[in-house]
Amino acid sequence: MAKGGTQSRKYRLQGAGLDLALPYLMLAPGLLIVLGVLVYPLWDGLRASTEAYRYGSVVANVGMQNYIKLWSDPQFLNALWVTVKFVALSVTFEAILGFALALFCLREFRGIRLLRTILIIPMVITPVVVAIVFRLIYASDAGMLTAISEWMGGGQVQILGSPVKAFFGLVVLDVWEWTPLMFLILLAGLQSLPHEPFEAARVDGAGNWRVFADLTFPMMRPVLAIAIVLRTIDAFGTFDQVFVLTRGGPGEATRLVSIYGYDTAFKFQQTGYAAALFVTIGLVVLALAFSAVRLLRRVDAS
């Protein structure tokens, strides 16, 4: 009886006839589209990255030359440096602010619903529009900062004309847009922590700071790490906001690798070189992601 049961169960799960082909039939549509529009281009991109282009057509196969050239191209190195600075600063601020806000909202109080609703807005608004919003804040003639300054009796405020201010202006934009996501992820993480250790600590008379340092923070480390990794990967590819806000300027102050790559491909028509640049960025991000995953496993194991 029991044996017959397992057999019929197995029969049902493995299926027969048309059911045998079902898994493949169900996987096929998605896989075909992905193979055609993602995987083929990925492969084609690798090919393009070894070619030299002139006016949009291949003129020579140059092997790894494009990749080697990248590392002696001062514009690429600068773009990479600007990107790393931008990502590190933005994500750090977002993590700290988001964590603080999540801790603050952990205890239910009136108005928390409203707060959560409002905080959704920055991250769902089209990034292009977010950039327009910040241009309208920073603009020296039509800007909010200028308007406020003039209202208080001051003069025009210049942000996007100065390299340093424009860079920090971009960081502020990113923090405004993405702190809410950090907040939501960390809040969900905090809410899923078990209650017992905290109650026990309270009974033992631990203060707020001790509870945070000995319990909350260590227990939140995996969630915090994942949130930071997700944001870092995402921030590395930032394009839309810079394209609209500063187009990479003034000079090269806000020119991230994505912007440099785009210009190389579509403005300067150096298709092969740009393809090599993008492949390199992809490898950097993948390496980041994998080392982060390994790091997380080690943290979990210890």
Partner: peptide, 15 residues
Amino acid sequence: LRIVPPVVILIPVYL
């Protein structure tokens, strides 16, 4: 594929 940033295939998709 999901982790690979979309910019990586921008040029080949365009081509």
